[in-house]
Design a protein around this nucleic acid. Structure first.
Length: 471
RNA sequence: GGCGCCGUCGCCAAGUGGUAAGGCAGAGGUCUGCAAAACCUCCACCCCCGGUUCAAAUCCGGGCGGCGCCUCCA
């Protein structure tokens, strides 16, 4: 498949390692607050990459996504809450897991935390390697990476010293550095802060970038790993510095591919906690929308384009997704016997178009287009009475295949299994309404339908009977 | 100031050299007790101006507009 590589700024053919396994690392959430849907845009797009590699390309995955559970924000948050750092960050990891499930993220193979002892140890080992190779210096009890020691520093971000904005605040830390571009590997201990011992018993805590390099190499093995992913804002300085640390420590390239997801925008501004314009999954649910619609919306445009979040587009996503599930419900109700070569040909064409689109740098919008073209063909065939029970499994298996990659239909079905009104009650009311219709008491029948609609359940009559669905 | 991305129907969004996918919304029709769903029909000279080409939404140049990164950030 073709995949855009930030390192080369071109689309390249991606191939897995010799064992057909893809070793992938994703920079996960800093767990000082609940993640918002901008954060989750990245994770959903990475999930689609993961699913495409796994379910469409049939590669094996070894995918690591970390939790950053120690940094200024988590420390300050824990102090304010009067909690232990671990307990404080546990809450947000739990929230992440809930939201990830609501958005249909496939579990990844490993979710390390920066403060796990084996990861702290790996960071210490990396600092040792960097010290031995002469890439570090110490100042005020902290250990720094010396950028002047790495000739090709800046190759990912294409930024150099001259590109740094004059007068810009270069570092928010109160640590002494030789060069403004140098970054801290290990922050010297401060009173009241959590402390670990590494690198010749230096007390302190990890710098911003060290954990990802250390965990990626510890868990994924020898570099280069195959794909490193994250939000576009991580290109600089985070990923640039990860490259610096990892490559100077090992003497080998860190990652073959760099995959970056563009920002979610809201009101023409980046969605971010500092701007106060964020929405979380609980916010979405409170507003009466469904996580499946969020996932659909996030997949409706290309991952390398900014996506402007609006409630209108979320509603449009909701309706589009409904068209897909309504079609599949109609397919399930088909009772005529036989099979039809024409519709099965359309299915095969859609599968091809879907696969082509996904293999072309994850063109999810085009892949959805292929699904909708098939939906129209199927609906037309049903209306014309040209769909039989032999066609049904062919269609179902095609959509199951699409959904292994996109993960929207199964998510919606899971939501539908928990309607706002108990299923037994819905079924009882459908029976009541059915009786009313039989005695041609349409006023009573309509009342049942309207009442259910007010409670979030819609009824649809057809020759095959009455179907209910969530609003 | 440096680097990068983007501007396609009312809204969302593919297409990146061969004459504009798809979804939402809207209009008309068919079906229906009424709805809903579905189907059929209708709905775009692709921000502007030049240039290259037999041919450009797609390539080149110049504008205009928007966003991001250069500082913690998905």
């Amino acid at each position: 498949m073709r995949l855009y590589n930030t390192l080369t700024r071109t689309e390249e053919t991606f191939t897995p390692g010799p064992d057909n396994t893809v070793r992938m690392y994703t920079c996960g959430l800093t767990v000082y607050a609940r993640g918002h849907i901008g954060n989750f845009r990245t994770f959903v797009c990475v999930d689609v990459l993961r699913r495409t590699l796994r379910h469409l390309m049939h590669y094996r995955l070894h995918h690591v996504m970390n939790f950053t559970d120690v940094d200024d924000r988590t420390i300050i948050g824990a102090q304010k809450a009067g909690m232990d750092l671990r307990a404080y960050t546990d809450q947000y990891i739990a929230a992440f897991r809930e939201d990830a499930k609501a958005l249909g993220l496939e579990p990844v193979e490993e979710n390390p935390r920066a403060t796990d002892p084996e990861n702290i140890a790996a960071m210490g080992a990396m600092i040792d390697a960097l010290e031995q190779r002469g890439h570090t210096y110490r100042s005020d009890g902290s250990i720094y990476f010396k950028i002047a020691s790495m000739p090709d520093y800046g190759k990912l971000a294409h930024l150099d010293h001259a590109g740094i904005k004059p007068g810009a605040r270069v570092d928010s830390d109160n640590y002494a550095k030789d060069d403004a571009r140098d970054f801290v590997l290990w922050k010297g201990t401060k009173p009241g802060e959590p402390t670990w011992q590494v690198a010749g018993d230096t007390p302190g805590r990890p710098g911003w970038h060290l954990e990802c390099s250390a965990m990626a190499l510890r868990l994924l093995g020898e570099s280069p790993i195959d794909i490193h992913t994250g939000g576009i804002d991580l290109i600089f300085p985070h990923h640039e510095n990860e490259i610096a640390q990892s490559e100077c420590a090992t003497g080998k390239p860190f990652s073959r591919f760099w995959f970056h997801v563009e920002h979610l925008i809201v009101d023409d501004e980046k969605m971010s906690k500092s701007l106060g314009n964020t929405f979380t999954i609980p916010d979405i649910i409170t507003s009466g929308h469904r996580p499946s619609a969020v996932r659909y919306l996030l997949l409706s445009s290309h991952y390398r384009k900014q996506l402007n979040f609006t409630w209108e587009s979320l509603q449009q996503a909701e309706e589009a997704l409904r068209r897909l599930t309504d079609c599949l419900a109609r397919v399930d109700a088909v009772s005529a016997s036989g099979g039809h070569a024409d519709i099965q040909k359309r299915v095969a064409e859609a599968q091809q178009a879907f696969s082509d689109a996904m293999q072309h740098d994850l063109n999810t919008a085009a892949a959805l287009g292929a699904m909708f073209e098939l939906v129209r063909a199927i609906n037309s065939a049903i209306d014309a009475g040209q769909l039989g029970t032999e066609d049904v499994p062919v269609i179902r298996s095609a959509f199951a295949g699409f959904d292994l990659v996109l993960g929207i239909l199964s998510l919606r079905h899971a939501e539908d299994e928990q309607p706002p009104v108990p299923v037994e009650e819905i079924e009882r009311l459908i029976e009541e309404r059915h009786a009313a219709r039989r005695r041609r008491d349409f006023a009573a029948a309509d009342r049942v339908r309207d009442d259910l609609a007010a409670r979030g359940v819609l009824l649809e009559d057809s020759a095959a009977g009455t179907r209910w669905k969530r609003k």
